Simulated assay, not measured.
Amino acid sequence: MADPHIKPEMDWLDYLSVCVYRMGFVLAAPSVLLLPWDTVYPAQKMCFVAAIMCASCLHIYMKPFRLLLQAATWGGLGCALFGFELFGLGGAFITLGGLCYKEYFCFRVPGLPLQPLFLAGLWFALALGILPFAQILAAIAALLFLIVSIAKWRMPLHFDIGDKSKYVV
């Protein structure tokens, strides 16, 4: 998480990683919205790509939180590769929901701290085949992803990096 008053010297990899992270939120919105109507799993794959984009480019100072959010996505991808797509989707939701919770402290978007609960409810609704409930939760979650992605793109790129000396490596 960044300190907006600090403008670090950024190289091209910093710019690339910030853009990939932000594009992950952009992709999360339509992929989550499409999940309840998905019959062939492309929306799940898009959710994985969104989570991978965010997890691979995290700018969080504390290593334990950074590794936890990254491990959820990579563990979920492993589950999906071995045929447990729904468990894998849960791993992607842990990462995306956790990052929305983190972003609440930057943007104070109402409802954003509840995004992990919306995604958990969506996961259970999909697992139990309760499609009307899944459609409502997917719409709420997608709207929150859209709002946070717009908020992220409106701020300068260096806000995502902050003070490089604070990162635990």
Rank of each mutant, 00 (worst) to 15 (best):
M23T: 02
I147A: 11
L58K: 04
S56K: 10
S149E: 12
G121V: 03
P132V: 05
A120V: 04
E85W: 10
V109P: 00
F25K: 04
C47I: 14
L34V: 04
R66Y: 07
F48H: 10
G78D: 03
V40K: 10
M62T: 08
F87T: 11
P42F: 14
L137V: 03
G75D: 12
L27R: 10
S17F: 09
F87I: 13
F87L: 15
M53K: 02
L117M: 08
L131V: 13
A43I: 02
L146P: 00
W12M: 12
V20C: 07
L144N: 08
R22Q: 14
W74K: 06
L143R: 06
L77S: 02
Y15S: 00
L117E: 01
A43K: 01
F93D: 06
G91M: 06
L99I: 12
P36G: 09
L81K: 10
I130A: 11
S56L: 07
F65E: 10
A92I: 07
M46Y: 13
A139W: 05
L69C: 01
G83W: 01
R66F: 02
P116W: 08
F48E: 05
S149H: 12
P110N: 11
A72W: 01
C47M: 15
V32G: 05
V40E: 15
R108L: 11
C54S: 13
T95F: 03
S17C: 10
P116S: 10
G75H: 09
C100M: 15
I140Q: 14
K102R: 13
E85T: 13
L144T: 09
Y15C: 00
L117G: 02
P113A: 10
F118P: 00
F133N: 05
L89K: 03
A72Q: 04
S17W: 06
L58T: 04
F87E: 14
A138C: 09
G90D: 08
P113F: 14
V148C: 00
G75K: 08
P64G: 06
P30R: 04
A55G: 15
F133M: 14
A134D: 08
L27Q: 12
G83M: 02
L89F: 05
W74R: 08
A55W: 02
W37M: 13
I140C: 14
D11Q: 08
E85C: 06
V49F: 07
L27D: 08
L81E: 09
L131M: 11
A72H: 09
A125N: 02
M53W: 01
F118I: 02
G111C: 05
Y101Q: 15
C57K: 01
I150T: 02
G24R: 02
V32P: 03
